[in-house]
Design a protein around this nucleic acid. Structure first.
Length: 323
DNA sequence: TAAGATAAGAGGGACAT
DNA sequence: ATGTCAGTCTTATCTTA
């Protein structure tokens, strides 16, 4: 809210920062109507004149309870049901005919009414999927739940996956492709986007789809939906591998330092970040005299020991490191 | 047993046709 | 659209210390 001379401009609270809000609500201001009383904000958030009761704002926040009571005994405090989510084909906003066999007054319903209700319920269920797209989404999201069981994804990734899949469905990318592979690709994209550490191989094995198929669909999504993915940072890979392989803090720091040098020396471009991180860690361990084999790091990082050796060669020549 | 070397092959990106 | 090419990464196998 803003007071300018004797005009009062009411602004939506959301357009103001907290600081602005704090500054713009006056403690005392003379009333624009009676000019005798003063405008104050009462405990309920209502801004009104103390003399004539003139309310100067209509956009006060509701400060009372936000739940409602749907039962007689007052204990069933409900809000508005489950939150909406993109991971349901109808965003969780459906209505269903219940399965109870009593009417609204609690009396048992007759047998003929029971069969009628049963028939109505069937048709209600059948009419749920309004389009092929709804059916597609419904199947995709039940698949998503299965994947979630195996990959343990958080809500953020789930919602992001659903968002990406919906976009893909809108663009007609589902035509001629299996739901599962496109969904797996969406999951991978969501993981990449939220920087959740899941490899293509993880997702491929969880969804029983060949790695290259998931990769192909993933690239399709990136291309068709213009998705911008954060670049996988070898520095982030370092701590992941180090944790998995139980590598000391000292070697971790050393590896980080080497990665930074490698990036500066421009010998990192075109190389897989995991291989780079793995080789830096291995080299760091050797330099610190830690007992660590290439195979252990290879296992922890998901690249082969051959790759580690090749990257090590590059690091040695590029950074003049002697082992 | 770990490390290193080598070979063959897969798959994708860049580029030319 | 299709083919070629350089470069990366993988699997497999063998040698060396």
């Amino acid at each position: 809210m803003q007071h300018t001379d004797n005009r009062i401009v009411v602004l939506s609270n959301s357009t103001l920062s907290d600081e602005q809000n704090a500054r713009s609500i006056p403690v005392k201001q003379s009333c624009p109507r009676c000019t005798k009383g003063s405008i104050v904000t009462d405990p309920n958030g209502e801004v009104a004149c103390t003399n004539c009761g003139y309310v100067v704002t209509q956009t006060t926040e509701e400060l009372g309870k936000e739940w409602r009571n749907f039962s007689d005994d007052g204990r069933d405090r409900a809000r508005t049901g489950a939150p909406t989510t993109l991971t349901k084909y109808d965003m969780g906003l459906n209505t269903t005919i219940g399965r109870g066999d009593r009417d609204s007054s609690g009396n048992p319903i007759t047998l003929s009414m029971k069969t009628t209700m049963h028939r109505l319920r069937s048709w209600d269920d059948r009419s749920k999927f309004h389009s092929a797209a709804d059916r597609n989404l419904s199947r995709a999201f039940s698949e998503l739940n299965r994947l979630n069981d195996r990959l343990v994804l958080n809500d953020m990734v789930m919602e992001k996956t659903a968002y990406i899949y919906r976009k893909a469905e809108e663009r007609g990318l589902t035509r001629g492709r299996s739901i599962t592979s496109l969904l797996a690709a969406s999951v991978y994209a969501a993981c990449r986007d939220t920087e959740t550490p899941r490899t293509l191989t993880d997702i491929a094995s969880a969804s029983n789809i060949k790695r290259k198929e998931v990769a192909r669909c993933y690239r399709l999504l990136i291309r068709e939906l213009d998705l911008k993915m954060p670049v996988v940072d070898p520095i982030k890979c370092i701590s992941r591998i180090a944790n998995k392989a139980d590598i000391s803090e000292k070697s971790k720091r050393k590896a980080l330092q080497m990665i930074r040098m490698a990036i500066d020396a421009k010998i990192s471009s075109g190389k897989g970040p995991m291989g780079l991180a793995a080789s830096a860690l291995y080299t760091a361990c050797v330099l610190n005299g830690e007992n660590m084999t290439q195979d252990k790091i290879a296992e922890a990082s998901g690249v082969t020991s051959v790759t580690i050796r090749n990257r090590c060669k590059g690091l040695k020549t590029g950074l003049n490191v002697e082992i």
